[in-house]
Design a protein around this nucleic acid. Structure first.
Length: 469
RNA sequence: GCCGAGGUAACAUAGCGGCUAUGUGGGGGCCUGCAGAGCCUCAUACGGGAGUUCAACUCUCCCCCUCGGCUCCA
């Protein structure tokens, strides 16, 4: 199957074809390390995690890089406010990031470069841009000269002249043109700084991503991702800098995810309408949160609200119920084969096809719902061991990409099963004697403990309630 | 103003030039002592207008509305 991706550069879908063989370089803009991550960051991390997983499943040799930017206004403000060194702040929030994303089942990237650890390379890159005539020094600062590049605005599809005409920002007298952006800034009192040929100061935003992505992935690589709000100016400027440095095409495919909204506004620190991952995960199972994020195509915005999370919990529970039944039945299944394995194979084909269309997790998930219904019917009609195993491996394939299911038993305690047998046995006796009051009491009290009893036609099932709501 | 993404049944989301979409919620039924889970089934759709076509929710054009970017931001 051919993978197609939506490339922001051309504004449409195209076939994905790596530059060399099956090696894929993938760079995603991580966070600024000055505070806990919120749900918007979670959306980005989970989106690109799934994209990476799908590429790996398709056999690509993926090198995944996520950067941490720790030299920017907010971080600097924080170090001064907290009175701690920048390094300490950086390390603290990198640690928190990994904790939060780990909870959400995000697999680690291969490399996590940190801006402040690449100062030497950043300064070299700025010097090279000056030498090549793409940047100029002015009062101890260095600016990128937007007029020096042939192509401007190719990612965000803007014209240089339109931008010049509508420039909102007051022109800094140190700049030659209003669209020029800073590569190196003078230090201000109290601020951390680095020595450079131009002044004691620090790099501007954008340059660190050019430097770090090219260092780890080469001058040209396949995928660069981030939220849509980064298209302009961040990614646009990255392209200009990088291509000015290398004289090569920087990135082949640009992927941008829709933003997390709250009501009709995007979730962001500056609007102060954010929900941290830590808080959300306290209230909802991380798998529910992950499912919630993947239940909408990544390029679309998602509205964050209670009702949507509740619905996600309910919907995910439906699939998990099916899987739980299969896992339970598989333990004492009748040996033998039947035709159901074919249904499973068709379902996987449908799932893969959806993922190949620009990582359409929504559509892929719809195919799992359909599969679940088929499985539920199959279970009622009598099942065979080989097919149950096939169903479990099918769910494992889905989970390899989405990571939203639980396969382990709800408890590790080996006494649990025999104990439940005793309780259920007693309750069945009560039921046989029509002592429903007692039978219901047992059921209700177990439910309070998080154990659900289900009476079926031929036996009684129990399970640990997994999906918290 | 400029650039970009959208407007799908009660709600949230997919999708395709013709084959009554997925989940949540609601109605009815099966199963059950009851409940839950599950299965079956019903209702409610494609912002507005024009055009192309044998046929458009799906293509083209115009209009309306929403969101994002143009300033820090996943």
């Amino acid at each position: 199957m051919v993978l197609r991706v939506h490339n922001t550069m051309i504004g449409q879908m195209e076939e994905f074809q790596p530059i060399n063989g099956n090696k894929v370089g993938m760079y995603v803009c991580g966070i600024n390390t000055y505070d806990d991550s919120h749900m918007g960051h979670a959306k980005s991390a989970v989106t690109f995690d799934v994209i990476r997983r799908h590429l790996v499943r398709k056999g690509y040799d993926v090198t995944y890089v996520i950067n941490f930017t720790d030299i920017e206004d907010h971080c600097i403000e924080r170090t001064i406010k907290l009175g701690i060194p920048l390094d300490e702040l950086t390390e603290r929030y990198i640690g928190e990031y990994h904790k939060d994303m780990g909870k959400l089942g995000v697999k680690k990237a291969n490399i996590y470069p940190v801006a402040s650890h690449h100062m030497k390379e950043i300064i070299e890159a700025i010097q090279k841009l000056i030498d090549k005539g793409f940047a100029y020094e002015s009062g101890g600062e260095v600016y990128f000269d937007v007029m020096a590049v042939a192509e401007f605005g190719k990612l965000s599809h803007r014209k240089r002249d339109d931008m010049l005409a509508g420039a909102r920002v007051a022109v800094d007298e140190r700049k030659r043109g209003p669209l020029d952006f800073v590569l190196w800034k003078n230090k201000k009192p109290e601020e951390p700084f680095w020595e450079s040929p131009w002044s004691e100061g620090r790099p501007g935003w954008h340059i660190e991503c050019s430097v770090m992505s090219m260092k780890y992935l080469g001058e040209s690589f396949e995928l660069h991702g981030g939220g849509t709000e980064l298209v302009f100016p961040h990614h646009e400027n990255e392209i200009m800098q990088s291509e000015a440095l290398s004289d090569k095409t920087f990135v082949k495919y640009w992927l941008h995810g829709g933003l997390m909204n709250v009501g009709d506004e995007k979730m962001s620190k500056s609007l102060n309408n954010f929900f941290t991952i830590k808080d959300v995960v306290k209230q909802y199972d991380p798998l529910v949160v992950r499912f919630f994020l993947l239940n909408t195509h990544y390029r679309k915005p998602i509205d964050f609200n209670q009702k949507a999370l509740e619905e996600a919990a309910q919907a995910l529970g439906r699939m998990q119920n099916t899987l739980d039944s299969v896992l339970a039945d598989a333990e004492n299944a009748i040996e033998g084969e039947d035709a159901f394995a074919q249904v499973a194979r068709e379902s996987v084909a449908k799932f893969d096809a959806a993922m190949d269309e620009d990582f359409n997790t929504r559509d892929a998930i719809a195919s799992i719902f359909e599969f679940s219904r088929e499985v539920n019917k199959y279970l009622e009609s009598g099942s065979k061991k080989s097919s149950l195993d096939e169903i479990i491996s099918t769910f494992k394939i889905y989970d390899e990409i989405l990571s939203i299911f639980k396969f382990e038993k709800g408890t590790q305690d080996h006494m649990m099963a025999p104990l439940m047998d005793v309780i259920i046995d007693i309750r069945q006796k009560a039921r046989a004697e029509k002592n429903f009051k007692l039978a219901d009491e047992i059921r209700d009290r177990l439910k309070e403990l998080g154990i659900e009893i289900q009476d079926t036609a031929d036996d009684v099932k129990w399970k640990i309630i997994r999906t918290s709501r």
